[in-house]
């Protein structure tokens, strides 16, 4: 990795941080992994590729709603950002098809709305 300079850090404006318009984040802390988050993460990556769905899929830490893991946060242009809980591999596929591709939110799995 190249050395980071003071200027690199100083020039960042976190309020302008752009995560991009289309992304999915999977909570991958110990409890998430114990609940099956790594399977969900792998399913999202595989299925997105198989189905030709372009979306940035990333990992993150604890989102707080620890009792309803695995947690998957989804942001797609034109829809509000939502947090899905109790996500299984099947639900993950539905998220890709229904939410990401068809821009329709899923029923019954949303735990937090922003």
């Amino acid at each position: 990795m190249k050395k980071i300079t003071k200027e690199d850090i100083e020039k960042v404006d976190p309020s302008k941080k752009d995560l991009g318009k289309n992304w999915i984040k999977v909570g991958m802390s110990t409890c998430g992994v114990a609940a099956g988050a790594d399977e969900v993460y792998a399913a999202l990556i595989d299925e997105a590729k198989k189905r030709n769905i372009e979306i940035d899929i990333r990992k993150c830490g604890c989102q707080g709603a620890c009792s309803v893991e695995p947690l998957v946060e989804v942001n797609v242009e034109g829809l509000p950002k939502v947090l899905y809980g109790r996500v299984t591999k099947d639900v993950a596929v539905t998220i890709l098809e229904r939410h990401v591709r068809n821009k329709k939110l899923l029923h019954d799995y949303i735990f937090e709305i922003n």
């Binding site: 990795m1 980071i4 690199d8 850090i9 960042v12 976190p14 941080k17 984040k25 909570g27 990333r58 990992k59 993150c60 830490g61 604890c62 989102q63 707080g64 947690l71 946060e73």
Partner: peptide
Amino acid sequence: CGYIDPESLEDYIAA
């Protein structure tokens, strides 16, 4: 927590 990728220094700096 739950916002950045914990395995990425770039992500932490960007935040």
